[in-house]
Amino acid sequence: MGSLKLGRRQFAIAASAGAAGLAFPALAQGEPIKVGVIVPLSGAAGPNGQAVLHAVTVAADMVNAAGGVMGRKLAVVAKDDESTPAVGVTRANELAAEKVAVVIEGWNSPVTLAMQPVLARADILDITAVSKADQILSGKANPYAIRINSPNGQDGAVIADILANKLSAKRIGFMTENDAYGNGAQQVIEAELKATGKPWENVVVEKFPFKQTDFRVSLTSVKQAKPDAVVAINAAESSGMPALIQQYRQAGIEGVLVGAVGTILPTVFKIAGEAMTGVVSADIYFPDLPPFNAIKANLEFIAAYRKDHNETPDKGAALGATALQVWASAANATKSLDRKTVAGAIRGKTIKGTILGDLSFEADGQAKQRYTVFKVTDGKTAKIEVLK
Results as ranks from 00 to 15, higher is better:
D161R: 15
P313Q: 11
G43D: 06
A294I: 07
K211H: 00
I233Y: 07
D161P: 09
G379E: 03
A51N: 14
G320F: 04
A59T: 14
E254L: 08
S336E: 03
K79C: 00
S138V: 01
K375A: 06
A243C: 01
V76M: 09
I146M: 09
I189L: 08
G357Q: 10
P40W: 05
A272R: 10
A317K: 09
A12Y: 10
I233Q: 05
K34R: 14
K383M: 04
N48S: 13
V230A: 07
L53A: 06
G320D: 03
G278H: 05
P151A: 14
A251N: 02
T312R: 06
E362S: 09
K5F: 15
I13Y: 14
A229R: 03
A101L: 09
R72K: 01
L74Q: 10
K340N: 05
P287A: 08
A232Q: 15
A157Y: 10
A60C: 12
I162Q: 03
D378W: 08
L257G: 05
G30L: 07
V188M: 10
A59I: 13
D80H: 05
A97F: 05
G68K: 11
G320N: 04
V39L: 07
A236S: 15
A141V: 05
V205E: 11
A157R: 14
I384C: 04
A160H: 04
M276G: 09
V258E: 04
T377S: 12
G68R: 11
I271T: 11
K375G: 00
G316L: 12
V268D: 00
A133I: 12
Q135H: 05
P47A: 09
L337Q: 13
I13E: 12
V58E: 02
S218E: 15
A60I: 02
I162E: 04
A59D: 14
G353I: 00
T176E: 13
N332A: 10
W327F: 12
A14H: 02
N298G: 03
V89D: 02
R147K: 15
Q116E: 15
R306A: 10
A243K: 13
K380C: 01
V102W: 02
D378A: 08
A26V: 01
A15C: 07
V326H: 04
K352P: 02
I384A: 04
D80A: 07
P313D: 10
L113V: 12
A304Q: 03
V256K: 13
L387D: 03
V231D: 00
V52C: 03
A225K: 11
V100I: 08
A282H: 14
Y144I: 04
